[in-house]
Design a protein around this nucleic acid. Structure first.
Length: 634
RNA sequence: GCCGAAAUAGCUCAACCCGGCAGAGCAACUGAAUCGUAAUCAGUAGGUUGUAGGUUCAAUUCCUAUUUUCGGCACCA
């Protein structure tokens, strides 16, 4: 007999080799029905796995946090089984879980799948679910596994990469067997509520040099309601898409004459200018000096900076007076020239020089995406020059500043620390280690959580990235703080220390929003187009109930609002009030002012806030004061 | 760049499968109605169906190329 300890501390005895399934049944048949796996001494295992010694056991029921992962992974196997039946020549790559579902990468040879094939695959999957295929686990040696998957190039490659002597586990259902750690559901009967979502191409092992496989994305849930709810949420998310809202609210446009080069329309321009003036204000207060460097500079500069060698395929170039020029893909080299324009003392440090710099990068055509990924964009850049001793303090200051700026918009983010690349890097490892430690120390000192991205740093230094999510839950890098160990060297930057000697400064390269374009894209989706009053292109819509009778009073009110520098629009069209209100609402204008007999008589205004039903009547002076306060407060 | 899909009026979409006068709603314009919180009524105008070729008596529809956009991959702010 062995003793099994449960999550609540209770201990019971069972025969050696008992399965979690039998344990659940012993407790209650209804519990067993809800169990799909078990956690034995902290490891997830199949329900049928024999337990050979005393153990702590947690039964995984359909409401456990990991349960969804298990059915999704099993759903991926189910999909693979269906595809193998429909396309016997199919070979399989990897099929992991992702945040909202699963995918499987498949090599279908010459067969091309299209979206219309997905329902057919779903039908076969549903049939396999109805049949209730038993999912069984098997352990084999590496040699045995290689023999079994001899016709499958991808599985063979995966098996070959496993260490010698490793026990390999296989999962089978029907005629389909897959290499997998598990655990899985005991039967395909668990997998009733799934949906195949989309098709894509994906390089084998994520390497563009490899063959591209067909990737099928899907998701699954425990109930039809949860699945329907998820699909509904996805539809809701699409309504916040900044490309859709950008069109509806006339913020920006794109033209096929300039793919990836956004045009800013008057409404979007207001948003942009407000954001920029906020940025300028904050940076001046933070002690930044502000500059602007040229968009186009001689090739020789890019040779010094290293961009001509490392970045040329992304640069737009031109020949002027027989000299080669390049449009800047980054602001740094220009910033270096500004630094060198003068001599610097240690007393000037930290020296913070900022620039809203327009850069152009020839991004791959398939990478372009609304405002999120464009070919010209404005980086809210700054370079901070200092001594090495100042690094931790300056980084902490920056993280505090980023935190403040993002909080103004109510945006949540997570930080990633990217460390030295394994191969392509410059400088000494000891310097890198110190720099990485400085970044980590700054975050730890502030109690900030972060994820480490090993080897993902720039070739010239480690970095902190601030990542935000869009409405579709995709992650975009916005803010970045990078230690640059390359450019001060290449440009031979110096400062004079307290002993009058020339020293090499340390340089931080940073962008807070990342790019104005991307950040505005994030903001559009974050606010779903209903911007806070300080950002709204039109802040107040003035609507007289009757054009003839109330126009004089409306103009009086408009002149008061104009004096107070609100962005206003008046609607004098010959339409009913409801019509004008509706339009102001669909354009997501923060305040609608209605002026009629009552307001004229009382010398007041009646406003309605965007998205609210309530109507409030008050004197114009009070309204002005209220909205002004709101704008200042942000 | 790669894999897959799409492109029709200013916007959202229909007609395309199976070739035969390209249509609707909203917006715009004109007129009537002068109206108190999410769509008043009637009328008018609006299209080289992304572009270039091909097949055909006839192409929005079928074929080829190309551009752009979308979903992914790779790359990246």
């Amino acid at each position: 007999m062995i003793s099994i300890q449960f999550a609540d501390g209770n201990i019971k005895s069972f025969a050696k080799g008992v399965s979690a399934d039998a344990i659940a049944l012993a407790i209650s048949p209804s519990l067993r029905k809800r169990c799909l796996a078990a956690e034995v001494n902290g490891t997830l295992v199949d329900l049928s796995r024999p337990i050979e010694a005393d153990a702590k056991v947690v039964l995984i029921t359909d409401d456990s946090p990991v349960a969804l992962d298990i059915i999704r992974h099993s759903s991926a196997h189910l999909m693979a089984q269906a595809i193998k039946i429909m396309y016997p020549k199919a070979q399989f790559g990897v099929g992991p879980n992702i945040e909202e579902g699963f995918y499987y990468d498949i090599d279908l040879g010459d067969t091309v799948l299209t979206d219309s094939d997905l329902p057919e695959i779903e039908k076969v999957m549903a049939k396999l679910v109805a049949q209730g295929e038993t999912v069984s686990r098997q352990e084999v040696t590496k040699a045995e596994a290689l023999k079994m998957f001899t016709n499958d190039v991808y599985k063979t490659e995966i098996i070959n990469d496993l260490p010698e002597g490793e026990i390999i586990t296989l999962y089978s259902q029907g005629d389909f067997t897959d290499l997998c750690r598990g655990p899985h559901v005991p039967s395909t009967k668990w997998l009733k509520h799934f949906k195949l979502l989309s098709l894509a191409g994906a390089y084998w092992r994520g390497d563009a040099k490899n063959k591209q496989l067909t990737r099928i994305y899907g998701t699954s849930f425990f109930s039809a309601e949860e699945l329907a709810n998820y699909l509904r949420i996805v539809e809701e998310r699409k309504k916040r898409d900044h490309r859709k809202l950008g069109k509806e609210l006339d913020l920006f446009m794109l033209s096929e004459y300039g793919p990836g080069f956004p045009f800013w329309l008057p409404n979007g321009m207001i948003l942009r200018r407000e954001l920029e003036s906020f940025w300028y204000k904050v940076h001046l207060k933070e002690g930044y000096k502000l500059i602007q460097t040229p968009i186009m500079l001689n090739k020789e500069l890019w040779e010094i900076s290293g961009h001509w060698i490392n970045y040329r395929e992304h640069m737009y170039t031109s020949t002027i007076d027989d000299q080669e020029y390049a449009i800047k893909p980054m602001n740094c080299p220009g910033g270096m020239l500004v630094y060198k324009h003068d001599i610097h003392s240690y007393k000037d440090f930290p020296l913070k020089i900022g620039e809203l710099g327009l850069v152009h990068r020839h991004e791959a055509s398939g990478a372009l995406n609304g405002l999120f990924r464009v070919r010209n964009f404005t980086q809210d850049d700054a370079h901070i020059f200092m001594t090495e001793a100042m690094i931790v303090k300056e980084i902490s200051e920056l993280v505090r500043l980023y935190d403040y700026m993002y909080s103004v918009f109510g945006l949540s983010y997570h930080i990633e620390l990217s460390t030295r690349p394994l191969e392509k890097y410059i400088g000494e490892i000891a310097t890198w280690d110190r720099a990485e430690k400085a970044l980590a120390d700054a975050l730890n000192g502030m109690g900030k959580e972060y994820k480490i991205n090993p080897g993902d740093g720039a070739f010239y230094g480690p970095k902190l990235d601030f990542k935000l999510r869009d409405s579709m839950n995709r992650i975009w890098q916005c803010g970045t703080i990078q230690l640059d160990m390359n450019l001060p060297e290449r440009f031979d930057l110096t400062y004079i220390d307290q002993y009058g000697e020339k020293k090499r400064p340390v340089m931080l390269h940073r962008a807070l929003f990342g790019s104005i374009e991307r950040f505005i894209g994030i903001l559009i989706e974050h606010y779903a187009g209903a911007f806070p009053t300080w950002l709204a292109p039109v802040q107040i819509k003035v609507i007289p109930v009757n054009n003839e009778i109330h126009k004089v009073y409306a103009e009086e009110i408009i002149s008061v609002l104009s004096e107070n520098e609100f962005r206003i629009e008046a609607d004098y069209r010959e339409e009913k009030l409801g019509y004008k209100i509706r339009e102001a609402q669909t354009k997501k204008i923060p305040y609608q002012l209605v002026l009629g007999d009552k307001e004229v008589a009382e010398k007041t205004i009646t406003y309605r806030r965007y998205g609210e039903q309530e109507q409030v009547t008050l004197p114009i002076a009070d309204f002005v004061k209220m909205v002004k306060h709101e704008i200042v407060k942000k």
